[in-house]
Structures are given as structure tokens and as C-alpha cells.
Design a protein around this nucleic acid. Structure first.
Length: 658
DNA sequence: TTAGGGTTAG
């Protein structure tokens, strides 16, 4: 017998319902034993007919078809054949006919139900979310002295994880021990591990795993996934390393685990190893890889993955998950046109595909397209979820569509029955704040029915920077310093707001606070994809690049040409109390300007210059990019920490509002 | 008849 984890031994035995214990160790033969029919006779008479009816049931996709087949079963006198009735119950479950209205009635007509038929009923209830009912069926089954089989327990464990009931799970675990004979049963044990880890009792799952005399790949993979889900990729990696034979699913679990835990480089490295070791990949593996590429956001990865998808013969128009992942990746890699091409071609679209596309449009400043798609989605009868609303509200926010945003926010609860969460409030604060309605935004924060989090106060602080409001900024910053005392960005924002208001004493105070906490500013950094696969990195103020002489020359030349058409450096973008000359020097060596200069020197005139950067672009760099796109005729695409800016012919896709 | 899948905000 397995030693249960300590938690189990503390459960008093009377915790298990009487009905369970009554049958403890009972080995009484069933009172309702099926009359003996010689196997050969069965075979001769029924085999052909049975297999024909089974395949008919397998093919049923509607209630009418099942009813017709059922009528045939009755005509042929096979209504007592457990094998066929089990199949009938499963078919009914599959098309989601309520158990009470059909399956239960059919079951009640069978005089000698076997364990598989009982189990089909248990599974049916469980899949329809009626877990208590499925347990009652189990109790009745035991009353009838029918011994459960492996599948009975895997169904019951699944039921427990569906309703998040670990106590019930423990009782059923106790049943497997009381009845006995399941110690080496991997179906049961793997379902048990799955239940524990899904309910958050990873250590219990681990213990069951440790006590298994033999383990299969499924037990290992269950645990790897469990560790990945709680973000412990180290433990997942250790288990994966110990795994004697790894299959595609185990590899995929690791790749996906890295992707889901914001470790895209590790995900891609592992995927490369997987390919080198000759492991097959399928669309599920690719979804993890695509998500990793999206996080890296570089066009080179999007080209690379497109080739892999094509080579594997996967058709994104027919696989809604791959399609949605691709939409997200293309958007995040700066290519919203390709994202839309994938979206348009998809045969099936669901809430994920729509939400990803709406978020993609929002990210690129295409608010009208985002709203149009949202309306289309609703008209198509696809119910938006919480994520969809975040995407739509972000789109409104980035395009100053206050009224539309307010209406959509109100419709969440009224029309779609989704109560706005703290993130939706953060979007609304951002929407009002970006539109300059700082008082309204503050009022919303103070009156919202849930506790504002760092996202809400952060949105308010960000708006205070745009509209230079040091008073409200101070309120927001005080909350933020409590909520996330070590987040450097808040100190920098507040200090910049004070700087642009000329309150240099307050600036020194914030800087002192940062020093005391030992916080150091993240240096501004930009990346430029020079050619396929080659990425150059530039830091603000860093003139150590081998070609910095040429870059400086390019920038000075551009500056003179821009000045001739009215551009003036924006001194407010420098948050240091230094003289104007120094401010000009700091501005012209911002990392994205260095990247732009290098791009102009090294990228063909017909190709867009794609720059990525780690922090928000300042006003000066933004107007500089607009000007350069005008005087050089080049397309410049900059991805900052939040979104994309497409500069073309003197204008930016964000409408100077970001 | 047990294992791996996509969208989120300052």
C-alpha cells in the first residue's frame, strides 16, 4: 500500500461518507450477476450486428441520429448489451444531451450494468459539470457490489479537479486504497497526479509520483507541466533532464513552459535542440515557438517561423490556435498587415483570433479598425471576454476616443455580463488621462468599487507626465511607492514631471530617494535589425560604436536640414538641470537617434528602418523621426515598450498621441 | 482510457 502524504493521514476515517466505508475491503460477489452466455454463441449471433451498431453510434452527431440508432438497438433486442449501451451513453454525452433526460433513463433499463457502463454514466455527469451526481452514481455502483475499474477513478479525479474539490479528491484517493489493486495502475495514478497538481497540491502529486514503482512518460510530463504552470522552470528542467526517454509531448511541454514564463530565448534554444535530436514537431509545439517569437518581437523570427510552418505543411487558415498565435506574433513583430492577412484567411475565427487581431490593431494605432472588428465579432455572435475588452479599451485610449471607450466600458456589464476588473479600470484611467481629463481620471480611481492596483495608479502617473500635472502625479506616485517600492520607472516619471515643471528641488528629492533605495536607472537602449539576423544595439549617449563618427555626421546633417523646415529640439524632454547646450547634446545622442543614423548608413533606401527600444520614446525623438521620414522619404518603424510607431512622410501612425 | 496549445494593461 502506498504511504499517503502526511496530509492524508490526518483525515479522520469518518471523514469519508458512510456509503464509501460500507464497502471497505468487501469482496462479496455481485448479487446481480449476468446470466452466462457462451462466448461463441455471442460472437456468432451478435458480433456483426454489434459492430455495425457501434460504428453507427460513433458516427452520430445529432440527437435524431442517436434516437434512430437507439430504435434499431431496441428492435434487435440489444437493449441489455452493456457494450452497446455504454457507447450510446457516450454518444449522448458527446453531443451534450443532459444526462437526466436520456442517458440516465437508458441506463435504468439495463438489468446488469457492467463497470464500463457505470463509468460511462459517471463520466457523463462529470463532463456536464454535475460532479456530485457523478459521485452518487459511484456510490450506487458500489451498493450494487460492482467493482470500479481504472477509468472510473480517472473520471472521478477529473471531476474533482473540475470543481476544485480536493477533499472529495482525497476521499476518492482513499477509495482506490481501500478497494486495492490499483497500486500499479498508471491510468489511475496519472489521473491522480493530474488532479493534485491541477488543484495546486503539487507536493502531493510529486509524492504519488515518487512512490510509483514504475512511471511512464505521462506521469513525468504531468509534473513537468505542473512546475511550468507555477513558474518553476528550474524544477521542470530538472525533471525533464532526468526523463530517460523524451517524446514530442514532453519536449513541447518544456518549450511551451519557457514561452509561458516569459523566457523566449530558452524556448527557442530548446526548440532548436529538439529539432537537432530529430524529434518530430507538430502544431502544438509550434504554438509555443510562435509565442516565444512574438515575445522577442523581431522580424527575423517571424520570417523564420513562417518557413517552419510552411515546411511542416501546417495550414494556419485551418488551425485556429496556430492562426491566432501568428496574428499575435506578426503584430508584435511590427507587421500588422501580415497579421491581418492571416486573420482574413482563417476559416474558423474565435474569441482568441478576434482578441489578438484587435490587440494588434490597438498596438499599431489603428483604433478604427479595432473598433470595427469588435463590432463584427459581436455581430458574428462571438462573445468577447475580459481580454477582448482590454484590447478594445486600449485601442480607444491610444486614439483619444473617450466617448466610445466610455460606452464600451458601460456595455461590459450591461450587454455582456462581464464585471469590469481592475485592469479594465486601469484602461479607463488611461483613456481619461491620455485625453487630458486628469480630474475625471482621479475621480474614477477614488470611486472605483475595487482596490486600485499599480496599473491604475501607473496609468494616472503616466498621464500626469503628458499633461505636466505635478500635484496629481504626487498623489499617484505616493501610492505607487507603497505598492511597488522598487519599480524604478515610477521614480523616473515623477522626477521627469517635476523637471518639466521646473521644480528642481523636488527632482533632487526624488533622485535622493532613488539613491537611498539603491535603484539605478535603466539605460535607454535601442536595437536595429541591420539585415536578416543581424541586430545592432545602441545605448543613449554611447559614442563608442566603431562608426560613431559617421553617425554623428549624419545626425548633425539631419539636424540642420530639419531646423531649416522649422524643427527645434524639445528641451523639456531632458530631465536634467543642465544648460541648453548640454541638453542639445543629450537629445541628439538618444539611443533611437543613434539607431536611426546607423540605419540610414546601412539599410537600403527601399527598406523600412525597424527600431526597437526598451522605454518610451521622448517627444523630441518622436518629432525628429517624423521630420526625418519627411526629408528622407524613408519609412521608419519604432517599437517602444508599449506599441508601434510607423513614421511615413512626416506623420506618425499614433497621431502624435502615445 | 491518463500528458503538451493562442489573446491582457501604466
Amino acid at each position: 500500500m502506498v504511504n499517503l502524504p502526511r496530509k492524508f493521514t490526518t483525515i479522520p476515517i469518518n471523514f469519508i461518507p458512510k456509503q464509501f466505508l460500507k464497502y471497505q475491503q468487501q469482496q462479496v460477489p455481485s448479487q446481480r450477476t449476468q446470466p452466462f452466455i457462451p462466448f461463441s454463441e455471442l460472437q456468432n449471433q451478435r458480433n456483426l450486428l454489434e459492430s455495425e451498431l457501434i460504428s453507427a453510434l460513433n458516427g452520430c452527431t445529432s440527437l435524431i441520429q442517436i434516437q434512430q440508432t437507439h430504435a434499431r438497438i431496441l428492435r434487435k433486442g440489444l437493449d441489455q448489451c452493456c457494450y452497446i449501451i455504454t457507447k450510446l451513453v457516450r454518444s449522448l454525452t458527446k453531443i451534450e444531451i443532459p444526462m437526466e433526460s436520456y442517458a440516465k433513463l437508458v441506463f435504468n433499463q439495463v438489468k446488469y450494468p457492467n463497470p464500463f457502463l457505470w463509468t460511462a454514466l459517471i463520466r457523463g455527469y462529470c463532463l456536464q459539470g454535475l460532479v456530485r451526481e457523478s459521485v452518487f452514481v459511484y456510490i450506487s455502483m458500489r451498493k450494487e457490489n460492482t467493482l470500479p475499474v481504472s477509468f472510473t477513478f480517472s473520471a472521478l479525479f477529473k471531476a474533482c479537479s473540475t470543481v476544485l474539490d480536493v477533499n472529495l479528491g482525497r476521499q476518492i484517493h482513499a477509495q482506490t486504497i481501500l478497494i486495492g489493486g490499483f497500486d500499479n495502475d498508471l491510468y489511475v495514478k496519472n489521473s491522480l497526479i493530474e488532479m493534485y497538481v491541477k488543484l495546486g497540491f503539487l507536493e502531493c502529486g510529486r509524492k504519488v509520483f515518487a512512490e510509483l514503482p514504475e512511471r511512464d512518460l505521462i506521469s513525468w510530463t504531468e509534473l513537468i507541466v505542473a512546475y511550468a504552470k507555477i513558474g518553476d522552470m528550474e524544477s521542470a528542467g530538472e525533471l525533464f533532464g532526468q526523463l530517460p526517454l523524451k517524446d514530442m509531448v514532453a519536449w513541447t511541454a518544456m518549450v511551451t513552459g519557457y514561452a509561458q514564463n516569459a523566457m523566449p530565448r530558452e524556448a527557442l534554444e530548446l526548440f532548436e535542440r529538439m529539432q537537432n535530436e530529430g524529434v518530430k514537431t507538430d502544431e502544438v509545439t509550434l504554438v509555443g515557438v510562435i509565442s516565444a517569437c512574438a515575445q522577442l518581437g523581431a522580424a527575423k523570427y517571424s520570417n523564420w517561423i513562417r518557413d517552419i510552418v510552411v515546411n511542416l505543411g501546417i495550414d494556419p487558415t485551418r488551425c485556429v490556435v496556430v492562426g491566432s498565435a501568428l496574428i499575435d506574433m506578426y503584430s508584435k513583430c511590427g507587421n500588422v498587415e501580415d497579421a491581418y492577412k492571416v486573420f482574413e484567411a482563417m476559416e474558423e475565427k474565435n474569441v482568441f483570433s478576434y482578441s489578438s487581431m484587435i490587440a494588434g490593431f490597438a498596438m499599431h494605432g489603428c483604433a478604427y479598425a479595432a473598433l470595427k472588428l469588435f463590432r463584427e465579432m459581436v455581430n458574428m455572435g462571438i462573445k468577447p471576454n475580459r481580454v477582448t475588452f482590454i484590447a478594445v479599451l486600449t485601442a480607444c485610449s491610444h486614439s483619444r476616443m473617450v466617448e466610445q471607450g466610455r460606452q464600451i466600458f458601460a456595455s461590459m456589464e450591461e450587454k455582456f455580463g462581464i464585471s469590469p476588473g481592475v485592469d479594465h479600470y486601469a484602461c479607463m484611467v488611461d483613456l481619461l488621462g491620455r485625453a487630458g481629463l486628469l480630474e475625471d481620471a482621479l475621480k474614477l480611481v477614488e470611486t472605483m468599487p475595487i482596490e486600485p492596483n499599480e496599473g491604475v495608479w501607473g496609468a494616472l502617473l503616466g498621464s500626469c507626465r503628458t499633461y505636466s500635472n505635478p500635484d496629481i502625479a504626487q498623489i499617484a506616485a505616493n501610492h505607487l511607492f507603497e505598492l511597488e517600492p522598487n519599480a524604478i520607472g515610477n521614480y523616473i516619471l515623477l522626477s521627469n514631471i517635476y523637471a518639466s515643471a521646473g521644480r528642481w528641488n523636488d527632482v533632487s528629492m526624488v533622485r535622493k530617494l532613488m539613491r537611498e533605495k539603491g535603484l539605478r536607472k535603466n539605460p535607454g537602449c535601442s536595437w536595429l535589425e541591420v539585415k536578416k539576423g543581424v541586430i545592432e544595439e545602441f545605448f543613449a549617449g554611447d559614442m563608442a560604436h566603431p562608426r560613431s563618427g559617421e553617425m554623428k555626421h549624419v545626425l548633425e546633417h539631419l539636424l540642420n536640414r530639419l531646423k531649416a523646415i522649422g524643427y527645434e529640439p524639445n528641451m523639456n524632454s531632458v530631465a536634467y538641470d543642465v544648460n541648453d547646450e548640454e541638453k542639445r547634446r543629450i537629445l541628439i545622442t538618444h539611443s533611437e537617434k543613434l539607431a536611426l543614423a546607423f540605419g540610414l548608413l546601412s539599410i537600403n533606401a527601399d527598406c523600412p528602418i525597424r527600431i526597437m527600444k526598451n522605454i518610451r520614446m521622448c517627444e523630441d525623438c518622436h518629432s525628429f523621426m517624423c521630420g526625418v521620414s519627411q526629408i528622407t522619404g524613408r519609412v521608419i518603424i519604432v517599437r517602444d515598450n508599449l506599441r508601434f510607431h510607423h513614421f511615413h512622410d512626416g506623420k506618425c501612425s499614433c497621431g502624435n498621441f502615445w
